[in-house]
Amino acid sequence: MDETGKELVLALYDYQEKSPREVTMKKGDILTLLNSTNKDWWKVEVNDRQGFVPAAYVKKL
């Protein structure tokens, strides 16, 4: 969790967005987890953008 109590995830792999609903991340990025109710796609925030990334590409910290 960060200082505001939000849950964080670590990008395990690079991911290039394939639609406007997704976000690009690089391996090693720390992202804010917004929603993990879907087992396949998690909603995150990175670089002031919100979108989805494959759940298998990130790990909760």
Rank of each mutant, 00 (worst) to 15 (best):
L8D: 04
M25I: 15
K18D: 05
N47R: 13
L12K: 05
A56T: 11
L33H: 00
P54C: 04
L10R: 09
T32M: 11
K59F: 09
E45G: 08
G28P: 00
V53R: 00
W42D: 00
T37S: 14
K18S: 10
K26G: 04
R49C: 05
Y57A: 10
V58C: 15
V23M: 12
F52R: 03
P54I: 03
K27P: 02
M25E: 00
K39H: 11
E45P: 00
F52C: 11
R49Y: 05
L61I: 14
F52H: 05
L31S: 02
F52D: 04
E3P: 14
L12S: 02
Y57S: 09
A56R: 15
T4G: 14
K39C: 10
E17P: 14
Y13A: 10
L33F: 03
L12C: 08
N35W: 07
K26L: 08
K43N: 06
L12H: 03
T32F: 12
E17Y: 05
M25P: 01
V58L: 15
Y15S: 00
E22N: 04
M1K: 13
K18G: 08
W41H: 03
E3I: 14
F52A: 03
D48V: 06
L12G: 02
D2M: 14
S19E: 08
S19G: 12
E22L: 05
D40H: 15
P20E: 11
M1T: 13
Y57C: 10
V58F: 05
Y13C: 14
V9D: 00
Q16I: 15
R21A: 12
M25K: 00
E7I: 15
A11W: 02
M1S: 13
P20A: 11
N35Y: 07
E22S: 06
A56D: 08
D48E: 10
E7N: 10
R49K: 10
K18T: 11
L34M: 07
E17Q: 13
L10H: 04
R21L: 13
E45T: 07
V9R: 02
F52Y: 15
K26A: 08
S19L: 07
V44Q: 00
Q16F: 14
Y57P: 01
G51N: 01
Y13G: 05
E3C: 15
M1H: 14
G5M: 12
M1I: 13
M1R: 11
L10P: 00
V9E: 00
K27S: 07
T24C: 06
V23H: 03
T4E: 12
N35M: 08
M1D: 13
G51A: 03
P20M: 09
R21E: 13
G5V: 15
L34W: 05
E3G: 13
F52K: 02
T24M: 04
T32G: 08
D48Y: 09
T24D: 03
L31N: 01
Y13L: 09
D14A: 07
R21Y: 13
P54V: 02
D40R: 13
E3F: 10
R49S: 06
W42G: 00
L8M: 10
S19T: 12
T37I: 08
E17V: 06
A56S: 14
K6T: 12
Y15A: 01
W42S: 02
V23A: 05
E7R: 12
G28F: 04
V44G: 00
E17F: 06
N35R: 07
Q16H: 13
L33P: 00
E7W: 13
R49H: 07
A56Q: 11
L10M: 14
Y15M: 01
P54D: 02
G51C: 03
Y57F: 12
W42P: 00
V23N: 03
W41R: 03
D48P: 05
D40A: 10
M25Q: 01
V44E: 00
L8T: 08
N38F: 08
L10W: 07
L61T: 06
A55V: 06
N47H: 13
M1E: 13
K26H: 09
K43G: 05
L33K: 01
P54M: 03
N35E: 13
D14Q: 04
V58D: 01
L12N: 03
D48R: 09
T32I: 15
P54N: 02
M25W: 02
D2N: 13
T37R: 10
R21F: 13
E7Q: 15
G28Y: 05
K6G: 10
N47S: 10
S36V: 07
N38E: 10
K18C: 11
T24L: 02
V23S: 02
N38P: 04
S36Y: 07
L10E: 11
M1Q: 13
W42V: 06
T24G: 08
V53I: 08
T32A: 10
K60V: 11
R21I: 12
K39W: 08
N47Q: 11
G51I: 04
K60D: 04
V46R: 15
K60S: 07
P20D: 11
Y15W: 10
T37L: 08
V44S: 00
E3D: 13
V44F: 00
D40C: 14
W42L: 04
K39E: 10
P20G: 08
V44H: 00
K26R: 13
Y15K: 01
V46W: 08
Q16L: 12
R49F: 04
A11G: 03
L10I: 15
T4W: 12
T32D: 04
T4Y: 13
S36C: 11
G5W: 11
S36L: 05
G5K: 14
L12E: 04
P54W: 03
L61M: 09
G5Q: 13
L61Q: 05
V44C: 05
N35L: 09
Y13M: 11
E17H: 08
L34C: 06
D48F: 10
Y15N: 01
P54Y: 03
V58M: 06
N47W: 10
V53L: 02
R49A: 06
K60W: 07
K39L: 09
T4Q: 12
L61D: 03
L8V: 08
N35C: 11
G51T: 02
G28D: 05
K6S: 09
V23R: 02
L12F: 03
D40K: 13
K27N: 05
V58W: 01
A55P: 04
V23T: 06
K26N: 08
E45A: 11
P20Q: 09
V9Y: 10
T24A: 06
D40Q: 13
V58E: 01
Y13I: 09
A11F: 01
T4H: 12
N38C: 09
L33W: 01
K59D: 06
W41A: 02
S19H: 11
V44R: 00
N47F: 12
D14N: 08
E7S: 11
D14E: 05
A11H: 00
